[in-house]
Amino acid sequence: MGILDIENLKISFGGNTIFSDINISIKENEVYGLIGTNGAGKTTIFNIVSGILKADSGRIIFNNKDITGLKPYQVAKEGIGRCFQTVLPFKSMTPYENIKVARAHARKVPKEEEMSIEEILKMTNLESKRDVLTSQLTLPDKKNVEIARALATNPKLILFDEMASGLSGEEIVDRMNLIRELSKRGITIVVVEHIMLFIKQICDRVGVLHAGSLIAEGTPEEVGQDEKVIDAYLGKGSL
């Protein structure tokens, strides 16, 4: 078993099956990329894992515990952090206040294992903006607040949903470096991303969703050479 096991997952909306029999096992401390066309169900999987949606069937096993059906705050307390594609920090609060709120609902860990708020601010480049209202920040900094809030929950695993979208080349490199640093600290990462360079450079393994199924899984190099993936998603020479 991995640190996160998605077993026989199925979900439908309005009678239309989005995906069925999805099985993914995430290894502890790996960086796992989830790719696929728009509507393939990538964010839906994140929503099920984090407790926002309930699957029709299947189980979510995290850290050897069945967390299927838990509410989002309960999932967070188990050790799963979440960063959304559309940033959702409290805009009427400062970055510091956002982090404090997240820390109040964090997974309980020994004090010496907890990343301090000052350390989180530094890691997310928010030190100089700690007391600025989040509503006044740029999009990259709002994304940083989203990341900071996830880190404040003392996660064992973080779900990143298109964290590089809307960013410049330099900002994307910063995100890749951050993921590498979090991995070094023992945090498992699952990332949904459309920027293939991002996926190729940071991921240990990649899973590809298409037409309701997981059609391929392997290293970025293996997935990039898979004919099914090339035909369904990548195109020639994309990864």
Rank of each mutant, 00 (worst) to 15 (best):
V173Y: 04
D174H: 14
D174C: 06
D174T: 13
R175M: 14
M176N: 07
M176T: 10
N177D: 11
N177F: 03
N177E: 15
N177T: 11
N177M: 11
N177C: 08
L178S: 06
L178Y: 03
I179K: 02
R180F: 09
E181D: 11
L182C: 11
S183H: 02
S183M: 07
S183E: 09
S183A: 14
K184P: 12
R185L: 12
R185H: 04
G186A: 12
G186M: 15
G186W: 11
I187T: 15
T188I: 14
T188Q: 08
T188R: 07
I189T: 06
V190G: 06
V190T: 12
V190F: 05
V190D: 05
V190I: 13
V191A: 07
V192F: 04
V192A: 05
E193I: 06
I195C: 04
I195H: 05
I195V: 14
I195Q: 05
I195N: 15
M196H: 15
L197C: 04
L197F: 07
F198G: 04
K200M: 15
K200A: 12
K200Y: 07
Q201F: 03
I202R: 00
I202N: 00
I202M: 00
I202F: 00
D204H: 08
R205M: 05
V206N: 03
V206L: 05
G207T: 09
V208Y: 00
L209V: 14
L209P: 13
H210T: 07
A211Q: 15
A211Y: 05
G212T: 05
G212A: 03
S213D: 07
S213I: 01
